[in-house]
Each structure stands twice: as C-alpha cells, then as structure tokens.
Amino acid sequence: MAHGTSIQYERVAEIGGGAYGTVYKARDTESGRFVALKSVRVQTDQNGLPVSTVREVALLKRLEQFDHPNVVRLMDVCATQRSDQETKVTLVFEHVDQDLKTYLEKAPAPGLPPGHIRDLMRQLLCGLAFLHSNRVMHRDLKPENILVTSQGQVKLADFGLARIYSCHMALTPVVVTLWYRPPEVLLQSSYATPVDIWSTGCIFAEMFRRKPLFCGESEVDQLGKILEVIGLPPEEEWPTDVSLSRKNFPPLLPGPITDFVPEINEKGAQLLLKMLTFDPIKRISALNALEHPYFKDEEILTQTKS
C-alpha cells in the first residue's frame, strides 16, 4: 500500500497535454486495468501541503463514496516530494478511451440521432446535478473532459481540478479554451455553479452542429460572438463591477436559435436558451434542466427507432 505510484502504475502513453499538465495513460500492475494519471505539482512551504489542496482532494475522495455513474472514478491519490518547495500530487482516475470530442467527430454523416443526443444530455446533467448538490463546480467543462464509454455512458472528468490547479496556473503557459466560458467569467465578474450550465449549453448545441457554437479568439471576441446569438442583455443584467462596459457592444437583438442550431427540436431549443441565459441567476439549474419537457418528450425516441 505504501509503495509509490511509479511502481504500481506503469506508464503506457502520453494522452493529451491537459490544460494543467501532461496526462498519462498507465497500467495498474495490480489489477491490469488502464488508468489515467494526472499529476499536479504544488508548492509546499514550511507548513507542508497547502490547505486548499488537502481540502479539494479530500472532497474528490468524498464524492467517490457516492459512486455516481456519470462521474469518472478516482481510484487512488498519492503525494510524493520532489524538492523542499514542491510536492507532486498524483490523481489516479479510471481510464476511458473516448471523449465527447472524438465521439462527435466519429459520428457518421448526419450526426448523432436526436434521441441519442437527449440521452447524452440527460447523463451529462445528472453528473452535473450531483456535483453541484455537493458544492463542487467543474469550471472547465468542454467536450474533451466529458468521457463516453463504449457502452455510451457519460462520465465527467477533471471536475474540481480547476481549484486544485488554479493557484499554480500562472506557472504553466497554457492556452485554456475560451469557447465554453460564460459571460460572467469572460467579464471577470463573480461566478458559481451556473458557469457549468453555460458550458453544457454550448456543448448541447455542439452535439447538433458537430462544431463549436462560439469560437472566440479573445475574451472580447468570445463575448461578441455570444451576444450575436443571444442578443445584448438589458443594462441591469450587465454586471456592475467589471472593466468591460456594455457600451463596447452593438445593440444586437437575439436571432432565432434555430439559425445557429438548425437540427434542434422546439423543446430542445427552449432548454438551450435557458442554459444560454446571460444572467447567471436566471440561468436554469442542472436539476431543473432535468425536469425540462425536452426530456419528457417521447416522440424523438419513437422517431429514431422507426
């Protein structure tokens, strides 16, 4: 039990340089199963491991006890000292071969059937509702960290990592994608669990479009692209404590969402708009989204079967 990760886990391949450092696919020599190793280097001062790291990893461990089907399994955690100032914390997750990005790319020509999209969305929201009810926000939801098993089971990955890494992010010059970021994050206003719902909305649209909904190149550009779709919000919804003024954007009116996501049905479009609501307070919650009529509409299923 006490032996280090390097002995028990045999690196097989490098899988994606995640936003927070390299992720390795490895083989668990005890069980023979594949795992994903994610390491983070944390600065340790004279008081040992930072409180934030201890609490966040402990929280991930606690979530693990619930064994939620739509959340990736955290199998092991290990801390090893690298130097007096640095400790490496390795999180060992179950390995799932495929993420939603490749899943969408692999889907044959007309894209995923509507019933299938609905199933994926339901699972995605279930996982999210679970995290949110345990006071965990993902903060960096995107197709790359939504895993899809060969049986079509959705598993959220990398949640809570954002907080563990955030203090050390300044050190790693990585580009984090802006495409799934909500207005409040782009505006650097305060934010909470609704950020994940925004990202889920973007991903929902992407499942139909098979390409991202908003591909901004900078914070301002990203916000401009968003407002082209949802329109310029009323003055009172614009956060007050931000540097970027509402006046910088043209007075756009919202266009019909089906112009941007043509294949979506009516109820799906309603739900999508509730997720892509500018004001985070008015944005639908994961639990309420699961109650939306979109998920109760049985027609889609029968259509796809016939």
Partner: peptide, 9 residues
C-alpha cells in the same frame, strides 16, 4: 495522506 488516500471525510 497517501496511506489514507486523502480521504478525510
């Protein structure tokens, strides 16, 4: 921490 696998619940 490693022995308890960070589980402090």
């Amino acid at each position: 921490l490693c022995g308890l696998k960070f589980d402090l619940s």
